[in-house]
């Protein structure tokens, strides 16, 4: 597998399905944390090249928040969750900072809450991956960055770049209530070796 140059359609389908299941679990975790009903739209999984990835998130210079975890143990690589800023503020208000205004400066408390949100969402995603594959996955503490979408995405794009010119991204829309929705994007970036472990454990 380390010799493999490009991922096949079949393998992309597998990543896509893992993404669908994972983001479903993530929505459930989010609903529990916020103690409210959350509707989830059917996640859109796309296989696309890097530049299109950036367009999906809203354009190169759009401000987004990226939450990145390093994976170790049986599966090595990274996992990233991306949200746009309006969604981030909605989430923070729901969680504990009910008087936070849009575009208000995010202090350490807010950042730490976001880190915890990232931890729970990605943790749910990764544990469903772990259940599916029976592989041990250990995640680092989450790292946060708020910057231009293209700059944030350059980190996973570079990792995917070692495998080929395309990436799998899962777009998930959570409906918090009638008026507010939250758009989130998951990227799972296993190393080449880990990728083959995932495939093998799924019998491919």
């Amino acid at each position: 597998m380390a010799e493999e140059q490009m991922l096949s359609d079949m393998q992309f389908d597998v990543l896509r399905e893992i993404g669908n299941i994972g983001s479903g679990h993530a929505a459930t975790a989010l609903a529990k944390m916020l103690d409210m009903k959350i509707d989830i739209k059917v996640p859109q999984a796309v296989v696309c090249d890097f530049n299109y990835l950036v367009q999906m998130v809203g354009g190169e210079e759009k401000l987004v928040i990226g939450i990145l975890l390093q994976l170790s143990d049986d599966v090595e690589g990274m996992m990233m969750f991306i949200m746009d800023l309006p969604s981030t503020y909605v989430l923070l208000r729901k969680l504990m900072f009910s008087d936070l205004k849009d575009e208000e400066y995010l202090n350490d408390m807010h950042m730490s809450a976001l880190q915890e949100i990232g931890n729970i969402i990605t943790g749910a995603y990764l544990s469903s991956l772990s259940d599916l594959t029976k592989l041990k996955i250990n995640a680092s503490v989450p790292y946060l960055s708020i910057d231009m979408a293209a700059a944030i995405l350059s980190v996973p794009a570079i990792e995917f770049g070692k495998l080929g010119d395309k990436a799998v991204m899962i777009e998930t829309e959570f409906d918090l209530d009638e008026t507010q929705e939250l758009n989130g994007y998951f990227l799972l970036i296993p190393t080449m070796d880990s990728y083959s472990k995932i495939m093998t454990s799924l019998g491919l």
Binding site: Q70, M78, L144, D147, V155, I158
Partner: peptide
């Protein structure tokens, strides 16, 4: 740039 401020020697992040 190093977009995520890791305290790490992981090569993957020093790209």
């Amino acid at each position: 740039a190093q977009m995520f401020a890791f305290k790490t020697d992981n090569e993957m992040l020093k790209v």
